[in-house]
Amino acid sequence: MFVRSIVAADLASLMALARSTGVGVTTLPANEERLSRRIDISERSIAGTAPRQDANYLFVLEDASGAVVGTSAVAAAVGLDEPWYNYRVGLSVHASRELGVYRRLQTLFLTNDMTGVAELCSLFLHTDFRHSNNGALLSKSRFLFLADFPERFSDKVIAEMRGVSDDAGRSPFWESLGRHFFKMDFSQADYLSGIGNKSFIAELMPQHPVYVDFLSEEARAVIGQVHDKTRPALSMLQGEGFSYQGYVDIFDAGPTVECALKQIRAVRESKVVTALPHHTQADDITYLVSNRKLSDFRVCLVRSRMTPAGLPISPEALSKLNLAVGDSVRAVPLSAREE
């Protein structure tokens, strides 16, 4: 298994993967034209011919058979083309010493504060492959790309986490707020948003501050909370230094987590070292290793142990990375726990 930049020849495999996901993954629609456009943008992003507001780097996870079994992506800077909306959860205090009144009220402000930041997106892994650190490899490989080519991204990186909704796709936050402002279901709003219509939906949302106390108890409870299925993804990002700073999705109030690019653990602690011949050690840990090549970017997992001279890497791993002993790699323990 290894991760690499997508190429035009992947279109058929990507279509096959998209079809296998069933309905509901709006970022990976089984639509040849749209997928083809995504691949094209990614190739142009790497080539440096896509303007920054369009740049979006798409990666695929390739299995031993050469099949594409997962995707992940980074957008260089969101909101430069169409406005990017969040609610910011703020505080408003109403107090009068004379009346003996002191009330602390949470408020939601519509903002475009995240304009221009880089976004982690389009993470999808085929269900058959959700094991053996494949998910971590697919997601975190992006951090090595950020570490290798930071000048291509904003200083801040965010990820929008899916908010709470029930099995029927009903979001309590949406029911209590969004629904009043335009008559459609959360799933429809979410779909329109997913296919890039977010700004038009936001035109309908309240522009003035909303006092959280006006929302239903159920809605209040899910502000900044993630869907149960998103909990592992959140933990993974938190482990990398991402944190919730009060920005939530305007539809389901799921949290936006953020981190300064340079403060992401896998960026901050990764080291550029020399690939050494392989020798197994008792205290080997799992490293995430990139080949540092822009035009043929590759990342795989390596069991090894860092030495002052460099990182011993097995021939199989070197072949996945298209490298030879003595080449330079970027490596970081797969997670903070490994260290």
Partner: peptide
């Protein structure tokens, strides 16, 4: 009661100047 004693604007001045969305009430 407060209004009777302090005057009505006393309370009004502590209300937010932002519009209140009626459908949320």
């Amino acid at each position: 009661l407060y209004c009777g004693i302090k005057g009505r604007s006393f309370i009004a001045e502590l209300l937010p100047q932002h519009p209140i969305y009626v459908p949320l009430l």
